[in-house]
């Protein structure tokens, strides 16, 4: 390996204790656009799960799987466009591309998790096989949940991807086009859809979903 190889990485807590309150990417939208209340008529309910820990893992599947299994207790998804979760569904890993996975854990865990993963993976300089990257992208994206009998109909209006239960079974997750923006669409359970949005698209997608959901009396669960 050449001498130019980077032998360091920045590992720091991106969310330190501070006087300045952290805000969800949708905080501005809530003030500007508002939050329609959930009512008896609501056939779609939107719920934001802000401030979760998002990590991007890159590298070889075999090496990463070993480390992730040791640290989190469950492995990487084996097939493209699928996700794995722990028993209570709090932590998940999603396939994004042949050498890229998205790990989502409860907010606050990501800093420690990154450290433990780096420890488990050992020194990346050891062998060429062990080249990997872990990037904390928690600040760059947020997660929105859609639930209700018409959630699938709302998605059908917004994305060209086939969301029929036959084409989109539970445990699947894809990166696709949504209202001309792009996002990660996933289905961790029978009734619930998750949308992982970029911060910069959050307001646009939020307003799109409210508009598309108006006919189903969409409500935002605060």
């Amino acid at each position: 390996m050449s001498e130019q190889t980077a032998t360091w990485f920045n590992h720091y807590d991106v969310r330190p204790q501070s006087e300045v309150p952290a805000e969800s990417p949708l905080a501005w939208s809530y003030r500007k656009t508002g939050r329609p209340a959930v009512s008896q008529q609501s056939r779609v309910v939107l719920r934001e799960r802000a401030m979760l820990g998002h990590l991007i893992l890159r590298g070889g599947a075999i090496v990463l799987d070993e480390a992730v299994r040791r640290v989190l207790g469950f492995g990487l998804p084996g097939r493209p466009n699928t996700l794995t979760q722990d028993d209570d569904g709090q932590r998940s890993i999603q396939w994004l591309s042949p050498d890229e996975w998205l790990v989502i854990v409860p907010g606050g865990e990501e800093f420690a998790l990154e450290g433990r993963l780096r420890e488990a993976l050992g020194d990346a300089r050891d062998t060429a096989v062990k080249n990997y990257a872990i990037v904390n992208v928690s600040g760059g994206q947020t997660l929105i949940e859609l639930e209700g009998e018409c959630a699938r109909e709302l998605l059908m209006k917004s994305t060209p991807y086939d969301v029929h239960p036959e084409a989109f079974p539970v445990g699947k997750g894809v990166t696709t086009v949504f209202a001309k923006a792009n996002l990660i669409l996933r289905r961790p359970s029978e009734q619930r859809w998750e949308l992982v949005l970029r911060r910069s698209f959050a307001d646009y997608c939020y307003r799109w979903i409210l508009d598309a959901g108006a006919e189903y009396a969409i409500g935002v669960d605060a």
């Binding site: 097939r79 493209p80 466009n81 591309s97 060209p160 086009v177």
Partner: peptide
């Protein structure tokens, strides 16, 4: 060939 499925042209 990487996602191993048919996807919309827009992507």
């Amino acid at each position: 060939p990487h996602c191993e499925e048919l996807r919309e042209e827009e992507e």
